[in-house]
Design a protein around this nucleic acid. Structure first.
Lengths: 244, 244
DNA sequence: TGATCCAGCTCGTAC
DNA sequence: GTACGAGGTGGATCA
């Protein structure tokens, strides 16, 4: 299937291309003037304006306006996307569990574009919490002298804790890791895990930085903090690439 | 400015259109085969594949692949987007605070489309937590007989609590509201607010449903739960529109 | 399928 | 500007 693009396409073309895009591995983009209605987990309406509508073969659906990273309206993968009217062109995206509906009513379709998507690549991401976990597990001395890490994702009654280990006195230690500035909710999470343990355990929140309130909360509950930067293997390359 | 679209555009056209889109209130969409590199808060790489690149006049930048609601790579509003090379066409999006860089290297540009975005509409969303807050505040009896709500967003040492009131015995009550199923983190949040109060206060978590673990935690800490459905004004319209 | 938690979360708001 | 919390969060993972 070739990619195609058309300006001011007939409604029938839009309908046909949407069908094609579903049968094959293609996205359909529509640059339109439209109203949008959503109902489901909440309900929303959006008055007429110019937007970009993008449908994907997995049933994902997004409506982008002229600002912001996030779409104004969307449907997660698995939705059923259809042209339900051609005068005016009206697109619906529905799913169940939960029942949700988006209806896009287009007073004009400026461009339509069908885009076969040949893409086998997977995103390779570094610097996640999992990477931080590996780093701290392999380099327990960044926590403190004599710390030994013994287990990742150790199961407890309250769920798996990031890292479990023992300090130089043989006392058990529980680490909760965060890849960014820690806040009150992160202290709560650490506290929750400790609450569910029968025994006395040191709790340490590990993050690159801490908000004032999180530090107060840690202090109040007899918990500790350690500043550890997330490790991103790409850092070096970054500086050579950017120079900005 | 007219909208325009071109297949297999020259690099110079892409460069010119990107400039135009920034000067005026237009988005630029590029259907390309590209590699993507990101470095900043983390680092990521994405091997060659077909994708849709969308730039917005506020500096937002997204790269959509053929699946999923979320972009594979993105930059929030405020980024500087530029063509840094024309052979091959290479797009960069950078920002500072934090320093971040995306570089999109296009081995092919299938379509380019410049899309003036005339859009003054604001999204009207109903069924949010704020709506639930109003509803419970105005209808305190949904919590229990004799409950009086006296304050929304009442300031405390731990931050503002959703609703403050008094029960039929004149005892103070603190409500934490959630518009969806409550989990462990929501119990923690309620508990955090109570911890910072000097006096004894009843704590009630209000949500449409509760996970088992959240109920255990509430029980363990002497807290309460109330099932309240979020109110969406659009519900009625929804059923008449969808019938699915 | 549901529950839990991470995310380069994004986004708005208040301090 | 940072901090905090909501979000129609989305998405992955594991029971």
């Amino acid at each position: 299937m070739e990619s195609r693009v058309e300006t001011n396409p007939d409604p029938e073309v839009v309908e046909e291309w949407l069908l094609e895009s579903k049968q094959r591995k293609a996205c359909l983009s529509l640059y339109v003037r439209c109203e949008v209605m959503y109902d489901g987990r909440a309900s929303a309406s959006l008055a007429a304006g110019d937007r970009l509508v993008l449908t994907k073969p997995d049933g994902s659906f997004v409506v982008h306006a002229d600002s912001g990273c996030d779409p104004q309206n969307w449907m997660p993968p698995g939705a059923s996307i259809n042209i339900v009217d051609t005068d005016p062109v009206t697109i619906s995206a529905t799913r169940s569990d939960p029942n949700e509906l988006i209806r896009v009513t287009c007073e004009e379709v400026y461009h339509a574009s069908i885009m076969p998507m040949d893409d086998d690549a997977e995103l390779n991401l570094e610097g996640t919490e999992a990477d931080l976990q590996d780093y701290v597990f392999e380099n327990p001395e960044v926590i403190e002298d004599g710390f030994r890490s013994t287990e990742k994702e150790k199961e407890t009654a309250a769920g798996p804790v990031d890292i479990w280990g023992y300090d130089s006195n043989g006392e058990p230690v529980l680490l909760e890791l965060k890849r960014r500035t820690a806040g009150p909710d992160d202290v709560d999470q650490l506290r929750r895990y400790l609450d569910h343990l029968e025994i006395e355990v040191r709790g340490i929140l590990v993050a690159p930085s801490f908000s004032d309130r999180s530090l107060e909360m840690l202090d109040k509950h007899g918990l500790e903090s350690r500043e550890v930067e997330p490790q991103a293997a790409g850092r070096d390359e970054y500086h050579s690439l950017s120079d900005f």
